[in-house]
Design a protein around this nucleic acid. Structure first.
Lengths: 208, 208
DNA sequence: TCAAGGAATGAACTATGGTTCACAGTTTGA
DNA sequence: TCAAACTGTGAACCATAGTTCATTCCTTGA
């Protein structure tokens, strides 16, 4: 007689939530934030507009969750690289290379997550992501400086420069047009990595 | 009997136009594009909303003109540096240093002009600015490579990296908080310049 | 099968901000 | 001074996109 949420019902609800989140993420992933209108998200997820508001109290919250979810994964990967064994140079190389190749797999999404401005509430979360990324790099840089492998650069500024450099070259408007193929992508990653490494280390041999 | 524009009238009109443009620029310069609502611009310029539309057929056109005006000046300055006498290394150093110190004088405006996205019509103009900047750098890089002063980097990618690096470190959200004072600004410019130079040249001595 | 209550719906509402336009005010040349 | 032509005005208009809510539908436990 009294309604009580069953396990099944809870799961259904969670599924729907996940479906909406995924739909929104996909829309952002190929049209940026502007494409993620609540109506469109709802349509893509196969629910009514109002349903979205059963799961998030505003569009901004939904967007913030997209940023948080996707970026947590990316930061985790880069952090793992930073924490792994190896020399600072190797770690920096791996971190940049890893991040760059992952970002290239979803350029539009990467751009939206790193660079494209949005409303303040989402901006906060995104800024946090950006700062976390920079902090991972900064840690590697500090270690390298202490060990004498890198020159006496300001690690905070250098980390910002690295984030900016690959952001711009990979996913920014100056980046080569999309769909240039895997060969061009590899070249791009190689160039960016070498640029950042030279900037940090002071010198590096040509790899390719 | 037939009305004809006198010299005075033309001047009055031009003055008003300039006043509106300046008002809009100032608003962007401290609140970004979002602050440049037509109502506010008109109020700041001391005219009615409708008057704005006597000079530009849409807000986008007004914004585009702001970008074009301000950026033409900046590109001109950087280009002059690139065209001056000196070794590629010196030129690159000067170009980055010049741009950076100018951008720091108006961070918010610089950010709006380089990074902050706006509607497509304005975006086109801004993209052009960004690309022109990158091209100036690219020319210096090419020259350096030909002369053997720089390693065999891809000049287009490296130029994008440089633009991204100083953009992020100077005016992006990772940049240190505003109002840190001239000492911190000098440090920042120094660090960014050295970062980009090391990345391009492969090695550079410490200057400060 | 049925009543209770949560979940879904989507048309209507609202807020924001760009754009228009009928009207009033100015300038010009005679 | 006067009429023609241009310029300025700002309230009203419109388009977009986020949010609400009365209603309908579905699930639950008896």
């Amino acid at each position: 007689m009294v309604y009580r949420q069953t396990e099944n019902a809870t799961k259904r609800l969670a599924d729907k939530r996940a479906r909406i989140l995924a739909a929104a993420r996909d829309l952002v992933a190929d049209g940026g934030w502007a494409a993620a209108q609540v109506d469109h998200v709802a349509a893509k997820a196969g629910v009514a507009t109002g349903t979205v508001y059963r799961h998030w109290s505003s569009k901004a919250e939904l967007c913030a969750e997209i940023v948080a979810t996707v970026s947590a994964r990316e930061v985790g990967i880069v952090k793992a690289v930073a924490d792994a064994d190896g020399s600072p140079v190797e770690k920096l190389d791996a971190a940049i290379r890893t991040f760059a190749s992952r970002a290239l797999r979803g350029r539009r999404l990467a751009y939206a997550l790193i660079a494209e401005p949005v409303d303040p509430e989402v901006e906060t979360v995104r800024l946090d992501y950006r700062a976390q990324l920079a902090r991972c790099l900064e840690r590697i840089l500090r270690e390298g400086i202490m060990r004498g492998a890198f020159p006496r650069l300001d690690p905070a500024v250098a980390a910002a420069c690295i984030v900016g450099a690959f952001m711009e070259a990979l996913v920014g408007p100056l980046a080569p047009a999309k769909g240039t193929g895997p060969r061009a992508d590899r070249h791009l990653i190689e160039q960016i990595t070498q640029f950042c490494l030279r900037a940090s280390v002071g010198m590096t041999e040509q790899k390719a």
